[in-house]
Amino acid sequence: MSDGATRFSAPPEGYRIVALDELSAVYHRASGITHVVASPAPEILDALSGPAMSAEALLMVMTIRYDLADADPAALAARLDELVAAGLVVATP
């Protein structure tokens, strides 16, 4: 997924998210499906709410914004893939 060319975005109008203690419920408007997610999925959605960005740029934003000392690119890519599969994140080649 992180081939450098792919850009990711999560337009906020595509979903609703509600924090429920340590989890968050996300309602995907296009499919009508509810997803229950844990960190860092809500943070990824938040980081991708603006202009589309590459996986590398997302990792940088996450590291800075959420003070991730040991950000793992592979783990982040896996979470990103899950959000793309759910339709919450749009991947543009």
């Binding site: 609703r16 429920l20 203690d21 989890l23 419920a25 309602y27 408007r29 009508g32 229950v36």
Partner: peptide, 29 residues
């Protein structure tokens, strides 16, 4: 916790999916 309660309540609801976003807003609240 609220997350566990939410999951259990979606399973206890017979029309959560049918109500769409209205159901999501109601149940998360």
């Amino acid at each position: 916790a609220a997350g566990e309660a939410f999951v259990r309540l979606t399973q206890a609801s017979t029309n959560y999916v049918a109500l769409g976003e209205r159901g999501f807003d109601t149940l998360t609240r």
